[in-house]
């Protein structure tokens, strides 16, 4: 049997952690883009758009991420579409992230006083112009801390993609455990690496919250 040194374990885990980082970034960037679209639908004047966005959010927040991963991986292949694990993982994570970001941001947009909408409307701005120039710049300042805070959930959420066979940090831990029979050591390191990724994020969220609260505006 091949011998694994501690360094071998750590090195392999760190290599796999790259995929956790890539997947997190893809999920976050894609989720932010889709989330912004869902946000606009959610606060639209059209009832159909609001209902659709509301349903979307309920669906993705109300079912486990694990099920969403299963469905996008196995469901699509049932339909005859061969989906590689990385694609199924990215799609499911993006849609899941979008549902949470849209709802976080809706709260931020709705916390902007009604007078800001009325003043900008009375100056002749259309809805999109109001959002672009008046509401979103103000909502953004409020949104940064909870958004960064949620990114921690995204990083941890990527661990579930191991179940559909995507080799990121958690999956690598599983493989290494099978090879080394040292589950405690391996998963201990896995946990440490997740912590090393998430801790700076949650710290920066707290820092931003304090900073933006004190400054109260961005100049």
């Amino acid at each position: 049997m091949m011998e694994f040194s501690t360094w071998d374990i750590v090195r392999n885990l760190l290599l796999a952690a790259r995929w956790t980082i890539v997947l997190s970034l893809v999920a976050f960037a894609g989720g932010a883009t889709v989330g912004l679209v869902i946000l606009f639908l959610r606060i639209s004047k059209q009832k159909a758009a609001r209902v659709f966005a509301g349903g979307y959010i309920e669906l993705f927040q109300g079912t486990p991420l694990l099920m969403q991963l299963f469905l996008s991986f196995f469901g699509l292949s049932l339909l005859g579409v061969e989906v590689p694990a990385w694609l199924a993982a990215s799609v499911a994570l993006i849609l899941w992230t979008a549902s949470f970001l849209a709802e976080i941001w809706r709260g931020c947009v709705e916390s902007i006083p009604k007078g800001q909408w009325e003043a900008s409307a009375s100056l002749g701005m259309g809805r999109f112009e109001q959002m672009r120039h008046v509401i979103l710049p103000q909502a953004l300042t409020i949104a940064i801390p909870p958004t960064v805070g949620f990114s921690v959930q995204v990083v941890k959420g990527t661990s579930l993609t191991s179940i559909i066979g995507f080799t990121e940090l958690a999956k690598a831990g599983q493989v290494l455990t099978n090879a080394t029979f040292m589950p405690f050591t391996v998963y201990g390191f896995v946990a440490l690496i997740y912590f090393a990724l998430c801790f700076p994020l949650s710290k920066s969220s707290q820092f931003l919250e304090r900073k933006l609260n004190v400054a109260h505006r961005d100049h």
Binding site: E118, A119, S120, L123, G124, G126, P137, Q138, T141, D218
Partner: peptide, 24 residues
Amino acid sequence: DELHLKALRLKVGMIFQGFNLFPH
């Protein structure tokens, strides 16, 4: 509709009790 509203709002300005300046 937004088009008619815009045309109307270009003719009448409004000033509010709470000022409603854009704080940013």
